[in-house]
Design a protein around this nucleic acid. Structure first.
Ligand SMILES: [Mn+2]
Ligand SMILES: [Mn+2]
Ligand SMILES: [Zn+2]
Ligand SMILES: [Zn+2]
Lengths: 144, 144
DNA sequence: TCCTTTGATGCGAATGTTTGCAATAAGGAA
DNA sequence: TTCCTTATTGCAAACATTCGCATCAAAGGA
């Protein structure tokens, strides 16, 4: 499914101009279906055609996030990751000690998100964020 | 209350050395009671005595986070913020369009965190993280 | 108190991300 | 189709954060 067309249309509808750079970046991240860092997007671009400046990649990814077409989050390793909604909504449990990442099931968080959207009139969806904590292994291996 | 002593003791108990640099950084962030960026910690240090290298500030803040004595999170402006548990556990709703930040009430999220801790055996507490989304004002001012 | 071990610091370089600004080109109007 | 307005790009510099490594000093034992 060419989701990228939908994304591009939404951008155009919001009054943004569709440039070859934006088309290429949207296509790449929409089809990839997983998290990508800005640098990974750059690599895919280099594989295909002429290069795009890294600042433009960041600006386009941020544009998608601001308009609810992608999510941005921090996996704790000093890099930021991006994904379109193709990746599906979910929460990552990131261990701040060993860096392991677990994805949790929708139903484990959706009640709280519903509540937040109701009470605070704040639109969390499509959600995709990280909760940093300690996994069992790391907790056990500590005297505390 | 000199929480900093507690923090320093915990670090020592975990086998870390207590250096003048660590003492100073822990004192500053524990007494401040709010979020601070690494650069803000540096400013406080400069006001007081001789300088500490910024890399040491980052390393010490990360040490506190890894040992559950402080939390680190991203307020979406390209800077990372840190706070000790003096700041209290809570979740920020960060609007990715206008940048506004709302703090939500403990009870609005704690059920989900309990569930996560049970099901995944993952220690979320003391929790302090951000959910990025759209506030009412920004949602309303969009054609979508 | 002095010595030894080894974890912590400072420094400078590398990496990741943002920003200001002049040049460019998308999209609408004529 | 051509022109105009102004959003977008590329570039280079600034900024935020991490890392490797030589040096230093905290902590514990003699
Ligand atoms: Mn994910
Ligand atoms: Mn807070
Ligand atoms: Zn872990
Ligand atoms: Zn807003």
């Amino acid at each position: 499914m060419p989701h990228c067309h939908t994304y591009l249309k939404k951008l155009r509808d919001h009054g943004y101009r569709i440039t070859p750079q934006r088309e290429m970046i949207v296509k790449i991240i929409a089809h990839y279906g997983r998290h990508m860092s800005a640098e990974e997007v750059m690599e895919k671009i280099r594989e295909k055609t002429s290069s795009i400046n890294i600042a433009t990649v960041y600006r386009t990814l941020d544009l998608l996030v601001e308009n609810g077409l992608a999510s941005r989050f921090d996996l704790g390793n000093g890099k930021t990751a991006y994904a379109t909604s193709e990746h599906g909504p979910h929460v990552h449990l990131v261990c701040k000690h060993c860096g392991s990442v677990t994805e949790i099931t929708e139903s484990d968080i959706s009640a709280s998100l519903d509540r937040i959207e109701d009470l605070y009139d704040f639109d969390c969806r499509p959600y995709h964020f990280s909760i940093h904590g300690l996994c069992r292994d790391c907790r056990d291996s500590k005297t505390d």
